[in-house]
Design a protein around this nucleic acid. Structure first.
Length: 185
DNA sequence: AGACCTTTTGGG
DNA sequence: CCCAAAAGGTCT
């Protein structure tokens, strides 16, 4: 209920492992416009877009940074240069990871959508990204993370997901079925 | 192409 | 140190 970005609750876990082919969309349109107005009212939409590795041809919708209404969000002092701006090194050629910090508004909308449906379609995600001024990839990644969090549920922190790996390994073996090694640790 | 899993990296 | 975004890799 309250503005809790970190909600580990995930009671309704509608299994939906298959969503790449068939997309049973009941066409439940509704709170889409709400988000738009909500975002505007909040005016808390800090530009989390960050600079993509590519020049990007997206629209630059820079919102006014509000430092008074965003105590949690760290606002750059002079904002002359992004601190997180670390272009890839031409010498190294390694990819740089830029961790984007979503604002509360964005998290709220994302969470709300997630509660409704765990799996969103391209259209849904695109709409969200458009409203939140995020990239499709950003939304997708976010959902992906949430899904895993939900799945984890309540497992000892020290426990590792070896079952899944084991299963996968087994499958791989079956596919190949050409391993002379009887068994190996 | 997308989901899932894993690891890396970075912010709080 | 924990959590969280994201890139990288694999399977479907």
């Amino acid at each position: 209920m309250s503005a809790d970005p970190a909600q580990p609750q995930c009671p309704p876990c509608p299994k939906a492992p298959d969503s790449r082919d068939a997309s049973p969309l009941p066409e439940i349109y509704g709170p889409q416009e709400n988000y738009a107005s909500l975002q505007m009212s909040s005016a808390e939409t800090n530009h989390t877009e960050t600079i993509s590795p590519l020049p990007a041809s997206r629209d630059l919708l820079q919102d006014s940074l509000d430092s008074s209404t965003s105590p949690r969000v760290k606002v750059l002092p002079t904002s002359a240069e992004e601190i997180t701006v670390k272009k890839e090194d031409p010498t190294l050629g390694k990819k740089q990871k830029i961790r984007t910090v979503f604002s509360q508004t964005q998290l709220y909308v994302l969470n709300d959508r997630f509660q409704g449906q765990k799996y969103l379609n391209l259209q849904q995600m695109q709409e969200l990204s458009n409203i939140l001024n995020l990239s499709y990839k950003q939304v997708k990644t976010w959902f992906q993370n949430q899904r895993m969090k939900c799945r984890s549920g309540r497992k000892t922190t020290g426990q590792r997901i070896t079952t899944v790996r084991l299963k996968r390994a087994l499958q791989l073996q079956s596919t190949q079925a050409s391993i002379p090694t009887t068994r190996d640790a």
